[in-house]
Design a protein around this nucleic acid. Structure first.
Lengths: 191, 191
DNA sequence: TTTGTTGGTGAATATATATTCGGTTAATAA
DNA sequence: TTATTAACCGAATATATATTCACCAACAAA
């Protein structure tokens, strides 16, 4: 009977919030600014979300899901472990490079005090495919016998900080650079 | 003639602010709370700092200087490049582990919109000894021919994310774990 | 076409937080 | 001792920002 909620608005709100976090930092993420950037009225935000905290958690889960999907793709059985690792690493790195607002958002809000413990735990579960992949590499003796969470932190931390530094210093990476950075990542985990 | 400013208060204010950032996140860093935690009146903060932004930048520079000092120590000439690298890596890792409030503070505020560009640039200069060390490793063919900023980001990102993850997941690292994590770091940069 | 319902609005309100300020205290020089 | 001056205090003020709400608009069922 009534008007329906507009899924395009949710997209616009999420994109607006992340854009603002990237540009001006999370401290200045104001509901009024988010609305303005999304092209809607402030009050409309509260049609879609109970409050600021819920909005932020919703974006968090959304983006984390997107990150996790990078690791969910299927690979041909003839591809070697190394080839799959390389494909996954490149896809993650490129995603961060092309979507710095998403990377920054999840990073900054994880320790902001805004993220509900529940949302964090749900998001962690998205990454079981990646965990399985790393564990199989250990079983096959291809990568180091190291706690999976440590392996992930090591790889992720290196990628994130590299991407952040490049943005800050306006450093453009060419194919050669990328090859080297990947080599560092692979060397760090390979047995 | 009058009362003098108290350098112990500055220490207390800095420690209080970092403690709060670690415990409750930067968004909820309130001047009144900082004062309370430091055991002084809110107004007293403004005797030592013009405003919140200045306070934060002051802490940033202070902590960055402390980080940089880890790399300023002198080494005996008979120590190999590997031994020095190892000593530096361990000292950085242990410092982050023992002072998570300092690590979190500089990380969170770098992209908060609070940090003045000037403070950032000053802090970068603290790290010339480390840059020189990495560059000499490249010249000697010991470590990879890779942009120094990338090398630093890679090493630092891996350490920070590992320490953060351990805190979040309440994972205690033993000597074996540390050895492995160091091995990953060394393997990633060594030629 | 009418009617009910919810989306949508943005100014008004409530609330939270940075900063100020008049008064008080303590250190120092005379 | 005493005078002077700045540290120190915390309630009061200014300001910034989340949230509400009275009203309007659009859509779907009747």
């Amino acid at each position: 009977m009534p008007k329906q909620k507009d899924s395009k608005k949710i997209e616009a709100i999420h994109a607006a919030a992340m854009e603002l976090v990237l540009k001006t930092g999370f401290i200045s993420l104001r509901m009024a600014d988010v609305a303005k950037q999304a092209g809607i009225a402030t009050g409309t935000l509260y049609v879609y979300y109970e409050n600021k905290e819920e909005l932020i958690n919703s974006i968090y889960l959304d983006v984390k899901r997107e990150f996790a999907q990078l690791f969910a793709q299927q690979f041909a059985p003839e591809q070697s472990y190394y080839e799959i690792f390389k494909a996954l690493w490149y896809s993650y790195f490129r995603f961060c490079e092309s979507n710095p607002e998403k990377m920054m958002f999840v990073e900054q809000f994880l320790y902001s005090g805004y993220i509900a413990e529940e949302a964090y735990l749900i998001a962690e579960n998205f990454f079981t495919p990646l965990n399985k992949f790393l564990e199989s590499g250990k079983k096959q003796g291809i990568i180091k016998e190291c706690n999976t969470e440590i392996l992930k932190s090591h790889l992720q931390g290196a990628i994130h900080d590299t991407v952040k530094m490049c943005r800050k210093q306006k450093l453009e990476l060419n194919e050669e650079d990328l090859k080297l950075i990947f080599q560092m990542a692979w060397d760090s985990v390979k047995q």
